[in-house]
């Protein structure tokens, strides 16, 4: 016999207590606002942070704290607000992530392991949630609102604001050093 995980509903933004209470291995249904950013958008955000002493310019639309989803959707078909939108490999963002955590990102969503420097930057302040790679339609189903935020010229790699409901995720690395990939 095998057992299934029980999913726990969580709503963004998380209180510091909620963030700390989530542990690697917990399954969650996430509701709230998340921002997409992958390779090209990370590069631009990082350059902006470097120019602005580690902070985003005040007029910039990313709130603090914010959740970042490493994803580049397929185009929406007629009648859809978004195409399939599963996660991409998080490791490619590792070089930029500590700076983004410093600037206020406290929930990171993607797939695959993170570098030691990302895990160190997460300590006490951020969570890393694994979305199932390849589950593009399942992830798209939980996306209820889509808004273009920045870099529309990057196409699939632009920054979009999603309002998601009950997005099924697994806590892969928590704020206290727990890490499912480290077994």
């Amino acid at each position: 016999m095998s057992f299934a995980l029980e999913y726990k509903p969580i709503t963004l933004p998380l209180s510091p207590g909620e963030l700390e209470s989530l542990q690697a291995g917990d399954a969650v249904l996430l509701t709230g606002v998340v921002y997409t950013a992958r390779d090209a958008a990370h590069k631009r955000l990082f350059e902006m942070l470097e120019k602005n002493g580690g902070q985003l310019p005040p007029e910039w639309p990313l709130p603090q704290p914010c959740a970042i989803y490493y994803a580049g959707p397929s185009p929406a078909a007629p009648g859809e607000i978004i195409g399939p939108c599963g996660p991409t490999t998080s490791a490619r963002m590792d070089a930029y992530t500590p700076a983004l955590i410093q600037a206020g990102a406290n929930v990171l969503i993607g797939k695959g392991p993170r570098s030691a420097s990302v895990l160190a930057a997460m300590a006490g302040r951020a969570l890393y949630l694994a979305a199932t790679g390849g589950a593009g339609m399942l992830m798209a189903r939980s996306i209820k609102k889509v808004e273009m935020v920045a870099f529309p010229e990057l196409g699939t790699e632009a920054i979009r604001r999603f309002y998601v409901e009950d997005m099924p995720l697994i806590v892969a690395a928590d704020s206290r050093g727990g890490n499912l990939y480290a077994r």
């Binding site: 397929s74 195409g83 399939p84 589950a135 593009g136 339609m137």
Partner: peptide, 14 residues
């Protein structure tokens, strides 16, 4: 996810 994709005739992965 695979069942959703097949039913909607939409890609299973982006």
């Amino acid at each position: 996810n695979a069942a959703l994709a097949r039913a909607a005739c939409r890609p299973c992965c982006q």
